[in-house]
Amino acid sequence: MKKFTTTLLMLMLTLQLFAQGEGSAIADTLAGSEKIYVVVTCVAIILIGLLAFLFSIERRLKKLEKKS
């Protein structure tokens, strides 16, 4: 039993060593794959912003069309 505990403790020690090997402390989903998903998110945000602008222009044009 003592041997088993020692082995387990040794294993935990190595686990800690592996954890340090990861580098950055931020381990989020978006941070995976060398953080390429951060870029994808930003491009998506820009597209959403521009599309929202398109919708607002559309609304203003509709009003103009109704008046004429």
């Binding site: 402390a25 931020i26 978006l30 941070a31 953080k35 951060v38 930003c42 945000i45 820009i46 521009l50």
Partner: peptide, 19 residues
Amino acid sequence: IFGILGLVTGAVWARFTWG
């Protein structure tokens, strides 16, 4: 419009590089 897009994309980028 561009300023807000810059702020939001900057915040997302900062979240995953500056914490």
